[in-house]
């Protein structure tokens, strides 16, 4: 290392490095500004104590969303390799005891003790509409999207049915139908496998200023929709009143579906049927948090690069003296 460095070059180098540091700092503040919330999302409150399990919400959902359901073309293309599963619900459209591409909301049953009495509780289950939804953020094609009002939905014209959204969803909500969608026009044997479907919180009705079909149809007013802060306020007041419990406020970093129950959710979780298409009530850590924390730490990387170069430059300057 015998490169000659003049005083002028040293000053020039120092100014360049200082400029780079300033540019990095500007990048940090821009990133912070871009991640600010635009407007408050809508949330729903589900009062489990009111639900009678009549399934009116389930049928209203099916009726309201019938035109969004898939009409797969048969025969389905041969897929490679053979392990790729054909998921066909088109002949089982009347299934209502779990989530399917044709059933985006179902009623879960649990037996639990409420005020010392054994009681059957019924719970409407569907997409939680997470505040920072992994299904949307990790979709490799942008087929899943989050609207300004907080709802997340899957664009059936873009989805290739790779099922990544279901894998990363803490509740395994999206369900696949083979034989439909964009993949048929691309490489049906080698990539994709249909379209993923889930509750879109009736985005088309919300756009018209109406409420989602399940809320409108409920004879017991189990669900309420409103700005998230107001819904959380109501949920806490209700939980206090019934000496109950809240689920969905902090799960996966926060969701827009807030359940209030007269029994603890771990007890409910032990008493419900769980499995494919049947969601749990477990505690869920913020799935996107680790990545986003690393992203914040990544801002140091350019600074480390600058520091390493500055160190090298300083060493060279010292050697020249």
């Amino acid at each position: 290392m015998s490169k000659k460095i003049s005083r002028r070059a040293f000053l020039k180098g120092s100014i360049t490095i200082a400029g780079s540091v300033a540019a990095s700092a500007t990048g940090v503040s821009t990133a912070t500004a871009l991640t600010r919330e635009k407007k408050e999302p809508l949330a729903t409150l589900i009062d489990i104590s009111k639900c009678i399990g009549c399934e009116e919400c389930v049928y209203a959902c099916q009726e309201s969303n019938a035109d969004k359901y898939p009409n797969p073309e048969k025969p389905y293309p041969e897929m490679f390799p053979k392990r790729v599963p054909i998921e066909d619900w088109s002949q089982k459209r009347d299934v209502t005891d779990r989530l399917t591409p044709y059933n985006w909301l179902y009623i879960q049953h649990a037996t639990a003790k409420v005020d010392g009495e054994e009681r059957e509780l019924t719970i409407p289950r569907r997409c939680m509409h997470c505040d920072n939804p992994p299904c949307v953020k990790l979709c490799p094609w942008g087929a899943a999207k989050q609207e300004d009002n907080g709802l997340s939905r899957i664009d059936s014209d873009l989805c290739l049915g790779g099922s990544k959204c279901k894998t990363v969803c803490p509740w395994d909500i999206p369900q696949r139908q083979t034989g439909t969608g964009l993949y048929l026009k691309l490489l049906p044997a080698l990539a994709g496998n249909g379209v993923m479907y889930k509750c879109d919180r009736c985005y088309n009705l919300l756009e018209k200023g109406e409420v989602p079909a399940c809320i409108e149809a409920c004879p017991e007013d189990v669900q309420t929709i409103g700005p998230r802060s107001e819904i959380l306020e109501q949920a806490h007041a209700l939980a206090k009143e019934m000496n109950g419990y809240i689920y969905g406020e902090h799960e996966n970093g926060g969701t827009s579906t807030i359940y209030v129950s007269p029994v603890p959710f771990d007890e409910l979780n032990n008493n419900i049927e769980k499995g494919d298409g049947q969601a749990h009530f477990e505690k869920v850590e913020n799935k996107m948090a680790s990545g986003n924390n690393i992203a914040k730490a990544m801002l140091i990387a350019p600074l480390a690069g600058i520091a390493a170069a500055a160190g090298k430059f300083y060493k060279a300057a010292k050697e020249d003296e």
């Binding site: 490169k3 360049t16 780079s20 799935k287 680790s290 140091i300 170069a309 430059f313 060279a316």
Partner: peptide
């Protein structure tokens, strides 16, 4: 595991950016 590979992608992206900035600084200064 999409979450593991997601974290890995981020970490190596950070290292990559550090390397690029180091190379650019070297080029400008030295």
């Amino acid at each position: 595991d999409f979450y593991i590979t997601h974290l890995m992608h981020y970490m190596f992206a950070g290292i990559f950016m550090g390397l690029v900035v180091y190379s650019i600084s070297n080029f400008i200064v030295l």
